[in-house]
Amino acid sequence: MNRSVILQCEAVTVEFDGFKAVQGMDLRLEKGELRFLIGPNGAGKTTILDVICGKVKPASGKVLFQGKVDITRRKEHQIAELGIGRKFQAPSIFPTLTVFENLEIAMRQNRGVFATLRAKMSAEERDRIEAQLAMIGLEAKADWRAGGLSHGEKQWLEIGMMLLQEPEVLLLDEPVAGMTDKETDKTGELLHQIARKRSIVVVEHDMEFVRNFASKVTVMHEGKLLKEGSMDEIQQDDRVAEVYLGKRRDVDVSRSTA
């Protein structure tokens, strides 16, 4: 097995009341890869993320983390501890905690009850949180309750929380939804920076965003893998064009249906 493969889905099938949301899906993610996952509505993109982070248990198939651990049997918090972080579509931060506290509890640390009972904020931890605050541009709002932030700020806070979590693999579900063009570009650059050290899977509908930042794209359709390759290859592919918009070849137009 290739040593640099960090996450490998093998023939994953997910059923909801007899409906196969994902059918025999394979996905290999290498270390330091920024992978985009696209496809029409109902293609099973979010479901495959749910399988990886443990929210949904597959009917069959395996998900191997670092080549050895089959994580389909683990619980969500155990998977998170292994080093797989998930960001959901809607920003989900803890609204009654301050921005600082949100980052504090997200930070990589022993998460057992007795550890948190005794935890003292060390200078090193404080520095890390403050550095993160600077990176996401929320230094001035560290004492705000997170519920009072704007939509974009919440998304950034959540990305900051994920980074302090220091996962090996980040799963992001439409991270730029609702962001302005400028914020979107900033997020894209941030993702590239992060991908130097970690691996990222992004589910995205915004084709322009995908074209600007993707290195490798996986297209799903009706729960199956349709095509995998560079953005150019994807755009040239007839089947992709077909599932997106009948016979038309321009993937771009799909944004209106997405």
Binding site: E76, G85, I93, T96
Partner: peptide, 16 residues
Amino acid sequence: RAIRDGENRARFIGYN
């Protein structure tokens, strides 16, 4: 308080 605000979110950070 994080669990009160969002139990699932706390779970995906790694807390049980």
